[in-house]
């Protein structure tokens, strides 16, 4: 049920940009467009003040995806598949240096983590962006190592801006609270005791989002995750993803 709720949230976000994005798309291309940008006829977004002089005058979806951050008035959605991780994410820029996100993460369809998040852009330079993100969600894992509980993740992203690509490094620290219950039935009555332990997952993703156009990007990355560290060893993974975005106002 909770997954469905999150998915419906994603739909909400996806539905949001329809009107405003169309309005943005109707704007004329900037006079300062470089030949490189002009190669892509569907790019009609306004230029970013931070990209002038780099040969990239507009904020591409690839750059937003790499930073995990969408500027004010921008949105994007993405999906990725790989081993063992796949995921879906929608993010929406809300101004004031913040963007919101809804995310669904899964490993082999046995470990699920829906979450909502808030991203803050800490450093915004022409070639470098650094963002911080807080995600709050719920972890469900089924199977022999079943577990469930509230989950929070802190992420730090470093994204570079090249001409048509955005290499990035994401470091994450994911924490889950796993509660257990012991019910003691005695002659004098029933008592319930709660206990809890934590699960920590360290995360590093090193990848690049290539800009197919301003609205489309392809994400290729290696995922180094240490799930339930230090109790469990982990095998590295990789994923490929697609991102798409636009303007909602």
């Amino acid at each position: 049920m909770s997954v469905a709720v999150i998915l419906s949230l994603g739909t909400f976000f996806l539905g949001a940009p329809a009107g405003p994005a169309d309005a943005a798309a109707s704007a004329s291309a900037p006079a300062t467009s470089t030949p490189e940008v002009a190669e892509v006829p569907d790019e009609e977004a306004p230029p970013s003040p931070h990209t002038r002089g780099l040969g990239v005058d507009v904020e591409s979806v690839a750059h937003q995806a790499a930073a995990g951050f969408s500027g004010d008035g921008r949105w994007q959605v993405g999906a990725s598949a790989g081993y063992p991780w796949w995921g879906a994410r929608a993010q929406l820029g809300v101004g004031h240096g913040l963007s919101t996100a809804v995310e669904l993460q899964s490993a082999l369809a046995r470990r699920w983590r829906p979450a909502i998040g808030l991203t803050s852009l800490w450093l915004d330079r022409p070639r470098v962006r650094i963002s911080g993100e807080l995600l709050l969600g719920w972890l469900f894992q089924v199977g022999e190592l079943a577990r469930r509980g509230p989950n929070a993740e802190l992420r730090l992203r470093l994204a570079l801006r090249l001409r048509r690509a955005a290499p990035y490094l994401m470091l994450g620290s994911q924490h889950t609270l796993l509660a257990s219950r012991t019910t003691i039935e005695a002659a004098s009555g029933t008592t319930v005791r709660w206990s809890a332990r934590g699960e920590w997952t360290g995360w590093a993703t090193l990848g690049v989002v290539a800009a197919v156009s301003r609205k489309w990007g392809i994400d290729l990355a290696a995922d180094l995750t240490w799930v339930d560290a230090p109790a469990t060893a982990a095998i590295p993974g990789a994923h490929i993803g697609l991102v798409y975005g636009g303007f909602w106002r």
Partner: peptide, 21 residues
């Protein structure tokens, strides 16, 4: 037995421990 399945799964590296079967 289920208890041992859990024990074995816990000794497999991630993500093999998600599908130890």
């Amino acid at each position: 037995p289920p208890e041992t399945q859990t024990f074995l799964a816990s000794r497999f590296p991630f993500p093999l421990n998600l599908r130890p079967d």
